[in-house]
Design a protein around this nucleic acid. Structure first.
Lengths: 207, 207
DNA sequence: TGCAAACTTGCAGTGACTGCAAAAAGAGCT
DNA sequence: AGCTCTTTTTGCAGTCACTGCAAGTTTGCA
């Protein structure tokens, strides 16, 4: 009973994790992030509170529910990119790919998260604090590709710009429904790419 | 007894705040951030634990000890800059001025903080999470100067890039002692200014 | 000296998070 | 199905950050 696919155990784990994430987001959107206790979340997902913490290191983490494999996946993608692709472009692609996948598979959750993040923008920042290891991983990948020494600022900055782009895009996205989050992230990354020294042109349109 | 300068009360408050900040950093550097309780910090500063929380909203905040007036000060500086100065340049100047002041007045504290942040890089990220209001303030100032609508990404991105530049600079700074933190922040901001699309040239030198 | 405002403090309580050890499944084997 | 090994779940006890409240204490000012 050891199929290449997934054992019953694995399936159950994925379901539990998803249920906890979903419960967290749903309840937080409904009554406000800190009017929901982990105990209630666990109850909603039909597990014990202790189990919640077996899956997520913190309430914050459960709200964002970042895929722990996203970092390694992106790093791999960056290293696998064709030689003529710049490090920036490789990184950009890996970010956009990840975001697109995420949004396609959980768009409804993000709509709820938006409600929460509108009230508490700091939660998004805090969520990224946990991914320090992933950042290091990605920075190393970028650094390797760029042929820069370990100590150089550029890889760190590029990777951090990715989180920042995402964060700002979400904040902006929360303002109205007329823009796709993916497009905003892309736009933000482009701005980082071309530089912030000059004010970009302002396209008409929007609400 | 209401001199334009400072009342006894104000002096005492500043001293208490400084003592708490100092105690937090010193103890955290000495035994590790989470082997220090707020109770111990308060004891070290000779106040009650409850008083600690009258000064800082969290242990995190006390470790970084960000000046709550820095945001408004920077916003003012940005708006006061000469007309021919670009928003980017105005922002850049305000960041560098703030950092320089900070380092000049508390260099020793930053050396201790470095020890802590080397172990726990996430604390620096979390510290910035608290300054969401300041970010909003600064973004508004930049937006006004740039003549962009509220909803535009640019001001948010520029301001967020500032925190990010600072964060990355500190992380890099923690690697060796041969660089000035101010220079690193400046370098990081320049990279954001000119854009990350292309890998910068690598200057020889350094360890 | 005396009063009001600003600070400090203790206390009781909530809730996130952890380590540990026992109970409950799932997996694989016969 | 029965048995055993491993993984997961759970309860429990405990620590610690953080909060509101209702005194105390200190400072500012007349």
């Amino acid at each position: 009973m050891n199929q290449p696919g997934e054992s019953l155990r694995d399936r159950k784990k994925r379901r539990t994790r998803a249920a906890l994430e979903r419960a967290t987001v749903r309840l937080a959107a409904e009554r406000g992030y800190d009017h929901v206790t982990v105990e209630e979340i666990a109850a909603e997902a039909d597990v014990s509170m202790r189990t919640f913490f077996n899956y997520f290191a913190s309430k914050d983490e459960a709200l964002i529910g970042a895929d722990p494999e996203a970092g390694p996946r992106m790093a791999e993608r960056i290293l696998a990119a064709a030689d003529e692709v710049t490090p920036f472009e490789a990184y950009r692609q890996s970010v956009l790919a990840e975001i697109t996948d995420e949004l396609n598979s959980a768009r409804d959750l993000w709509l709820l998260r938006k409600e929460v993040l509108m009230q508490r923008p700091d939660l998004l920042v805090r969520a990224f604090a946990n991914s320090a290891e992933s950042e290091q991983l990605l920075a190393n990948a970028v650094g390797k590709r760029a042929g820069l020494p370990e100590s150089h600022l550029y890889p760190r900055l590029l990777v951090a710009a990715g989180s920042t782009a995402f964060r700002c895009a979400v904040t902006r996205w929360a303002l109205d429904d007329n823009v796709a989050l993916g497009d905003l992230v892309s736009e933000a990354l482009d701005l980082f790419g071309t530089g912030l020294a000059h004010v970009p042109h302002h396209h008409e349109g929007g609400s």
